[in-house]
Design a protein around this nucleic acid. Sequence first.
DNA 1: TGCCAGGAATTGC
DNA 2: GCAATTCATGGC
Length: 293
Amino acid sequence: MTELRLEPAQPYSFERTTRRLLLFEKTFYRYRGGCFYRTLRLGHRPVTVKLDWEAGGVRVRVEEDLSRKERELLERLVRRMLSLNVDLQPFYEQMKKEPRLAPVIRARAGLHFMLDPTLYECLIKTIVSQQLNLSFAGTLIRRLVELAGETLEYGDERLPVFPTPEQVARLEYTDLQKLQFNRRKAEYIIDLSRMIADGRLDLEALERLPDEEVVERLVALRGVGRWTAECLLLFGMGRPNLLPAADIGLRNALKKLYGLAHQPTEAEVRQWGEDWAPWRSYVTFYLWDFLSG
DNA sequence: TGCCAGGAATTGC
DNA sequence: GCAATTCATGGC
């Protein structure tokens, strides 16, 4: 048994930050008795990690005894996934000047990004989500994971472990077509997984590059357009200043908030977004949260 | 029913 | 070059 206690930068709301897990991440995150849990790989070893909020900090528990190295890995991973080191105070100060956004943001004080544990997981989930409603996308992701990944016994449940690129690389396109992926999407997912498994593509190396260069390298890959690249920067890396201006959810949220008769164009969103730098990802994220309730 | 989903590649002009 | 079409299917 291993237990960590991690203190976040203030303000931090665990409840607001984890809310999206209940709405959109039901395949990986289970919620029982006030506690979230999912599987994560520490190196190559998958373990079940439990997360809850206790006395002003995040409590992280794993059944197994972990080595010192694994504990450090776990702490780094959870800190990154829950954005525990991000100070939102400057964002809140800046947004006081935005009359229409300010109330939306104030009502969500302490809401932070909830990142995917790996860039690979984020990439695959984002590609599957292209153009599909979130509910169907969630179904496809669950089917992919059940086909390619292993599971972990936990109590009377079997928890899915997100597959490695190597596991997905072994599939054939028709395996995914049988799961109701369209042919092209099956190709994107398997081809990218093979590139990573073969060492032709190193996603982790992108962490060291500035936003625009990451976008440039990602959009060169078949199946990755600007929207997908920006989502990866946002949900995979937690970069603060991305504006997926073409995103249908963001545009619908602005339509709702601004009381527009029509859906704003990508150009209009980019125009308004200039005032939000260097916090454009957070405005996007708060507007997505606004749209979903 | 028909149209839209937190798009991207391909085709057609 | 850029607009139109294609993709699979669930949800409203």
